[in-house]
């Protein structure tokens, strides 16, 4: 009986948490836009969330593309099919690795920072202080961060993918000697703009939404103590990553089957 009661209670808690998170999100993004006030805030967050994540994304993308080139070549060369290296690298990056790895790195790099920053603002009473100054912290603090995360993660995923394909090209063509023309033309023949590129972008939009939302909610509801903030930060990375992998499975099943 206890087990069932516990199960019921924790499901209710999860539902309540999701409801609260939904309300927080709606309150922060709904309302009449004030472009003159919000745009500079948004730009600043694009810098913090997007620009500052660029380096890690570019480097990881390059290395993952190079590894794909190397691994793909050693597998394909056995079948005499090293011509297929181009599509293999491009498709795995466009459909899976670009959106997923970017989202995981984003959760670790930008998501945890967002949680810690907002948690710290709560702990140092900056959020309360905004409220007492008749400024809505959801509109002022949460909203620009949400939009910046939602927009910059797909951009980062595109950069990751493009750099990854170049990495695969350097290893496959320049180093291992796959034919240059074949690499690109076979790739072009099998990569479709809508099915592969656009579906990848849609995936990363979904991931961006989920990861940013989780990070902001965890920060906003963090216990205002140092333990509370560090627990919230960890929880952002764990929950965010699991959510990305779960959604990836669902989206892949819908898109590519």
């Amino acid at each position: 009986m206890d087990v069932i009661a516990n199960l019921g209670r924790s499901s209710l808690n999860i539902l309540r948490g999701m409801g609260a998170a939904l309300i927080m999100l709606l309150q922060s993004i709904i309302g009449k836009p004030q472009p003159r006030k919000s745009f500079p805030l948004f730009m600043r967050q694009m810098y913090v969330v997007g620009v500052q994540s660029m380096l890690i994304i570019l480097i990881s993308g390059l290395f993952i593309g190079m590894v794909l080139g190397l691994q793909g070549y050693t597998i394909l060369v056995d079948f005499g099919a090293e011509q297929a290296l181009g599509p293999m690298v491009a498709l795995s990056l466009l459909r899976e690795l670009g959106p997923v790895v970017t989202a995981l790195l984003f959760a670790g790099r930008a998501g945890s920072a967002l949680t810690a920053e907002i948690g710290l603002m709560r702990a140092t009473e900056q959020l309360s202080s905004l409220e007492m100054m008749a400024v809505d912290p959801l509109r002022r603090v949460v909203s620009p961060r949400f939009w910046a995360g939602f927009i910059s993660m797909p951009m980062l995923a595109l950069l990751f993918t493009a750099v990854g394909i170049l990495g695969g090209y350097f290893v496959g063509v320049q180093w291992l000697g796959v034919d240059d023309g074949a690499f690109w033309s076979v790739m072009q023949a099998s990569v479709d703009w809508r099915d592969d590129v656009m579906n990848g972008v849609i995936k990363s939009l979904v991931f961006a939404f989920v990861v940013t939302w989780i990070a902001l909610y965890k920060g906003y509801t963090a216990e205002p103590t140092s333990e509370g903030i560090s627990a919230a930060t960890t929880s952002t990375v764990v929950t965010g990553s699991l959510a990305v992998l779960g959604f990836d499975f669902v989206l892949t099943a819908i898109m590519f089957s």
Partner: peptide, 9 residues
């Protein structure tokens, strides 16, 4: 009204 928080905020 305004409030001076304990931590300054």
């Amino acid at each position: 009204m305004s409030m001076l928080f304990q931590s300054g905020a």
